[in-house]
Simulated assay, not measured.
Amino acid sequence: MNKRIAVILPACNEEVTIREVILAFHASIPEASIYVIDNNSKDRTGVLAAGALMEAGIPGRVISEPRQGKGNALRRAFQEVHADVYVLADADLTYPANRARDLMRPVLDGDADMVVGDRHSGGHYSEQNKRRLHGFGNDMVRNLINLFFKSNLRDVMSGYRVFSRTFVKNYAILVEGFQVETDMTLHALDKRFRIVEVPIEYVDRPAGSFSKLNTISDGARVLFTIAQILRYYRPFAFFGSIALIAMLLGLLAGVPVIHDWLTHRYIYHVPLAILAASLGTVSVGMLSIGLLLDGIAHQQQIRYELHLLSQTSEPGDG
């Protein structure tokens, strides 16, 4: 194939599992280089990872990223690692390394820009995942994304993914934490990159390995990220929704005012009249902003598509 393959393993305090994960991916993809992103670990994660790479003679290295957060770790990896195919996985033994080639195949065949390991279709994720509220949040986020982007994705938060070089080198990571999986999914949908989902088996963390996820705070960050993405990439839907809510509230506040005028030809509910007028002004303003930004977003989409075309054009093309 003559394809450069890079396995990216973001790791924070994963000394219990990091060595086994490295050896498992090396056994599955012996031709790949493996890069461990030591994300401010307080244990021996970096030392054990470097030792495993050296002892097994695996090409790659440990990259240190002191800024906490998976998004920061991936930003450093995508800046420093150059390959044709990128395999991303967590360093906690939850994803099967022996399925890496199945995920790589659509990218290698030119059929996908991003392949996602679908935990929901491929195994007993609901049984293995002990965080019920976390699972509920995943479902809610997935349904919101499918609604707004007219997609039919099964797993938008999987950490097991394969990317083409085109996707990686044209993806600006602007988030810092675990919401990065949602962000890259939304980016792929908005920029019309081809997404393929491959069912995989998910296994919960082994004993002694602890998750850094916080269901409430990380869930709030993911929802905030979706709101931000809608504001940037679907501004008409975002501001149009605010306009609709303001209009409905204005109409509700204006009912007593209209009743006063029709009955007495005089307005007794002056505060409600002011509130209704203000909400109406807000509604018109939000709708105008949404229309303006929607036009700007469309122009940005055109420039992005032309940028991608310029990267794929052959030398000498007219």
Score class of each variant (00 low, 15 high):
A220H: 11
L279H: 01
I18P: 02
C12W: 14
R75N: 09
G177S: 11
G117S: 04
D102V: 00
E55M: 07
T225H: 11
D155K: 01
R142H: 00
R61D: 14
H120C: 08
D317V: 06
F149N: 02
L251Y: 09
A112K: 03
L251C: 10
L144K: 10
V81W: 15
S241T: 15
L251W: 09
L153N: 01
A246I: 00
H120M: 13
I258D: 05
Y171K: 10
R105D: 06
M54L: 14
A89D: 04
F136L: 14
V196F: 01
L108I: 15
E305C: 08
A227Q: 13
L74S: 07
R19S: 14
L147V: 00
S288C: 12
E176I: 02
K191W: 05
A50P: 00
N143G: 00
R161E: 05
K3H: 09
L108W: 02
E181M: 09
R75D: 08
N170G: 03
D190T: 10
A253G: 02
D183M: 07
G137K: 07
A56S: 12
D183H: 12
N129G: 00
R132S: 10
I58L: 06
R4W: 02
S28M: 03
V47S: 10
I296T: 05
D38W: 12
L292C: 10
F224C: 11
Q300A: 13
F148Q: 05
V81N: 05
N143P: 05
F193D: 05
V115C: 02
I18D: 02
Y233T: 09
Y35N: 07
R76N: 06
N39K: 06
E20N: 12
L262K: 11
P256W: 13
